[in-house]
Structure formats: structure tokens, C-alpha cells
Design a protein around this nucleic acid. Structure first.
Lengths: 150, 150
DNA sequence: AACGATTAAGTTGTGCACAATTTAAATTAT
DNA sequence: ATAATTTAAATTGTGCACAACTTAATCGTT
């Protein structure tokens, strides 16, 4: 019997469920901030680098306009960001934090602390896991490169 | 400057993008089989264990009826599975492979081969990564346990 | 300067993912 | 036995995620 199709042997499945379950962990933590997980990621980018355009935002998060446009619209409705056209290039939409959005950062500082407490993971293991994940992504990108060369 | 909110330092973000990008890799491979990634996961379970009910299927994949009911409906439309009520318990819906669904397994055997070729990963690394991912899930489950105890 | 190609956002349509609710069957407690 | 509870699926509603397409602005070339 060929074992290659066993669900639990597939790295994709393990990644998929690990990611889903970790996201589930975030949900109750983010609820008081009135944010979904994806919205939280957008806020993380803006707290680092306010006033970037949608395309840059998308490239940081690997999301296209089909996902980001409505997502940002919701963040505007909540009142955390606002958007405006770039003066130098009228095609670009610049996303900026509102006062509420900036202020939220203080509260958000507790999030990583809470999550790592829940995961109960030591620093060395954490670093090793991060390296694994970036390595997987590097391999995926390398394959993408090889493809494009042909 | 507090670095704890930096996007790239968050394990959740690395997991999230790694999972998305790996799923993207599967898309063109699964397209000839006429399957989405989630549908492929359901088929993996059924090729292992045909004729299980929706609840069992959901617990293998960590998916609830809200996701699985319409997903299975699509697999029925494609013609890979069929469903019927369990005779011993009329609440349960049993999902069974059709002939086409069983036959598809032959073609699917190529999928893991293609993916690991694309990832270009050696056996030892693969195993190590699988262990890390299951460890992350164990930690998440352990936290869930600790919560429930209170 | 003018035209063709490229780029940035937005829109539409499909398919997850999940919370919350509903319906019906089975289990348990009284 | 019957009422109360628990369970299995389905349904409804929200929010991603992404492909394919549209619209408008910019860039490149001649």
C-alpha cells in the first residue's frame, strides 16, 4: 500500500492546519481590538510604515487588490485608517492611520505577549521555527525563479 | 523602539504566508484533477477511509459542517463522491467515493511527487519540518486543554 | 506629441472558513 | 414513556483569498 497520499504525511496539510489553528488562537485576542486576523496584519504594516500605498501593502502581505480593497474599506469604516490619492501618481492610493488607528498600537503591544504565553515556547525553539518557515518560503520562491527562467 | 510588533518577527505571519504560498503551488497541479486544495484534502481522507460520515471528515480536517456541507456538494456535482444517510443513525451523512472518485487516486499519486520536486527538499529536512509543525499544533492543543480545565 | 504597453485599484464571481442559528434524530434523565 | 438534553447536518451571514476583468493614469517609443 502506497503511503504517499496519507493526509498526515503531507507537509501542506500540517502547514494548513497549523496556520488555521494559530489564527484561531488570535481571534479572541483580537476581538477586543475590533480586528480580524487579516486586518491585524494590515495594521502591523501600517504601524511600521504609515502612509504606504495599496500595492506596497499587498506586496508585504502577499495579497492582491481583490482582497485588500474591501479589507481597507472595512478598516476605514471602523475608523482606524483613511485613504487618499498620491499626489505624485494619481493611480496610487495611500493608506494612513487615523488617530484611533495609531492609538490602537498601545493595546496591540499586548498581543504578541499573550500569544507567546499561550504557545509556551522558548526563544531558541521559536527562532528555529521561524527559520524553518522562511526556508520553506525560500524554496517556494526559488522554484518560482526556476520556472520564470524557462 | 519596541520590535515586538514587527510583521516579519511574528510566527503567525510566517505560517500564514508559507501556507498560502504552498497552497498556491498546488493549484496548477490540482487543476487537471479538477480539484481545489480543500477538495483535494477531502479526497485524501476518503482514499484512506471511504464511507465515513461528515463529522469524522470534519474532525480529520478541522472543518465544520458550514465548510464541509457545500464543499461535499461540489464534489458530488463533479461526480467524485455521493452521500447517503447512515442506516444505524439517521442523523449521519455518509460520504462515499464514486467510481470516478476512486479512479482519480491513480492520477493523484503524482501530486506529492511533483510537489516535493518543486520544493526540492531532502528527506531528513522534510521529517524535521513535519515534527516542528506537529509540535506547534501540540502546543496549541495543550493550551486548549489548559483552558478547558479551568 | 501621440500611441501602445504597463501599472494601480477596483469590481465581479467562486470557493473556502467559521460563527450562529435551525431542524431533526438520538440519548439521557426523570 | 415522555420531556429535556445532546448531537449531526444544513443554512445564513460575514470576511477573507484569488482569478479574471475593467478603468484610469503613467511610461516608453517612436
Amino acid at each position: 500500500m502506497d503511503q504517499s497520499l496519507k493526509l498526515e504525511h503531507q507537509i501542506c496539510f500540517q502547514l494548513y492546519t497549523a496556520s488555521k489553528e494559530l489564527t484561531r488562537l488570535y481571534r479572541p485576542i483580537l476581538a477586543p481590538l475590533n480586528l480580524t486576523y487579516s486586518q491585524y496584519l494590515v495594521m502591523l504594516v501600517l504601524w511600521e510604515e504609515d502612509g504606504i500605498d495599496l500595492r506596497q501593502l499587498g506586496s508585504r502581505l502577499t495579497l492582491d487588490s481583490g482582497t485588500l480593497s474591501p479589507l481597507v474599506k472595512r478598516l476605514i469604516q471602523i475608523g482606524y485608517v483613511e485613504k487618499s490619492r498620491a499626489t505624485d501618481d494619481e493611480r496610487k492610493i495611500v493608506v494612513r492611520l487615523t488617530e484611533d488607528g495609531s492609538a490602537l498600537r498601545e493595546q496591540a503591544l499586548e498581543v504578541p505577549r499573550q500569544v507567546s504565553g499561550m504557545l509556551n515556547i522558548d526563544e531558541a525553539t521559536y527562532v528555529a521555527y521561524m527559520e524553518m518557515l522562511t526556508d520553506i518560503k525560500t524554496r517556494l520562491h526559488d522554484f518560482g525563479e526556476r520556472q520564470r527562467e524557462q
